[in-house]
Design a protein around this nucleic acid. Structure first.
Lengths: 243, 243
DNA sequence: CGTCTAATTGAAGCATCTCAACATGCGTGG
DNA sequence: CCACGCATGTTGAGATGCTTCAATTAGACG
């Protein structure tokens, strides 16, 4: 059973929110998913679009982002295989941000109508998708706290903690290391920092033995230390509960 | 028909998202709402709580906030009469943030169970509440962009634009002025700035003729100018659409 | 009138940015 | 297989936006 198969990804992801029974699995498998590949740097959706489908990331790393005055970019969130970064399109008509690809990405599209139809038949699946968007929002809140009140050093440590925990729960991190194909400039766009300063902060994190990086592969060298440095408390990720 | 009556507030608010028909109004009016008053500075809910009800702000100004290492506070969002700032509690069990009162606040509480029951009977109301949480999330995204990539001056201008537009759509702003009972220190917690710098930024906004403030009452002196200064585009507030 | 909180001002410090140069690695075409 | 070009990472130095500390003023309230 290929994990890269769209329906499997979706079911795996929703299972990380709550247990999915047979009927629910069947309903999800009946969803029409149309896969499409995107190149690195390409946009899956643009700010201002009025989408009629939502997308599910099957493979690769995607991000929400906004452009602000002066051409600067702020990355709002990062998304892995299984994430649905534009569920809000179900009930908001205009995209207030874009979704771009940090790597080559395979995404599967499902019409909003099909999703609504599934929710109509299966109330609990609707609740699960709602929950998915609520966890997104919770992550946004933590980013607000990070950008507003944490130092560059804390922010970067915090970001690594979040990504590690999220990727691990999706089976995308092994032991203490994960692959994060982002340049330092892109990390800057996520943390609200200049590329130069990102470089210096990463050096400090390495020097202090909290992380070890070789290219795109980052390893947590000292989890407790990194967690403390980043003021990280994973409660806001709201992983697993009975709903 | 008292506007301060909880059900009226709720219906007024949801009407700003989409038209509400008779049946839906009736269903909302049947919701058990228990009002309670809070003092300025008091918490409506605390981080770590596991609420079984959601609250509706009836009167006053409330905020979501987080505390980060070192005791610093970041305000995540501001909420007026009609807002439901903890709807996420419906499907997330632990509060990842607190909700506090910037002024005396009257809030009405409705059990999650009662809300779910209404959604069960009336699917479209569920969608409207979902949409409410999605707009929250959209505002979070814009705050992320502000905190990450805008200067103190831009951030403050942007905040004033957002609050003005939101309050106007709730009938809480007259013409070009609105009452914002926040100290400069609290504005700092919202914008990720020190109180001293807030003071200087406000002076500049006044000096440049963009706003006029007398105490808690702020007036927009030059809307276009303020909008430009704050790089403000209200799309992200997603006001009105047919769902 | 005295007290308390909030607003204002000045001055010094520091975190982060900008600019500019250089190093490194990698893919491509010759 | 080498030479080149280009993107990315690294380093240094100077500029700046914002913070911190400390003192003063202004307003609100009993």
């Amino acid at each position: 059973m290929a994990i890269d198969e769209p329906h499997n990804r979706l079911i795996q992801r929703l299972s990380s929110l709550s247990e999915i029974n047979e009927d629910e699995q069947a309903a999800l498998r009946a969803l029409p998913l149309r896969a499409r590949d995107f190149d690195k740097g390409e946009d899956i959706i643009r700010q201002g679009d009025r989408p009629t489908e939502s997308c599910l990331i099957i493979r690769g790393l995607a991000c929400r982002y906004k452009l602000v005055a002066g051409g600067k970019r702020q990355i709002i969130s990062l998304h892995f295989a299984g994430d649905m970064p534009d569920l809000q399109g179900l009930y908001l008509d205009v995209m207030d941000h874009g979704i771009g690809c940090m790597t080559g990405v395979r995404a599967a599209f499902v019409p909003h109508q099909a999703l609504r139809a599934v929710f109509y038949e299966n109330r609990r699946l609707g609740e699960l998708f709602w929950r998915h968007t609520l966890i997104d929002a919770s992550i946004f809140r933590d980013w607000i706290a990070s950008l507003g009140r944490r130092s560059a050093y804390q922010r970067m440590a915090h970001l690594f903690c979040e990504l590690f925990v999220r990727m691990r729960s999706l089976g995308l991190a092994e032991r203490e290391s994960f692959r994060l194909p982002m340049t330092q400039s892109e990390l800057g766009d996520a943390c609200g920092l200049s590329p130069v300063h990102v470089n210096r902060v990463l050096q400090r994190l390495r020097r202090e033995g909290l992380i070890m990086s070789t290219g795109e592969v980052h390893a947590i060298a000292n989890w407790e230390g990194l967690r403390d440095a980043g003021d990280f408390d994973e409660t806001y990720l709201h992983q697993m509960r009975s709903i």
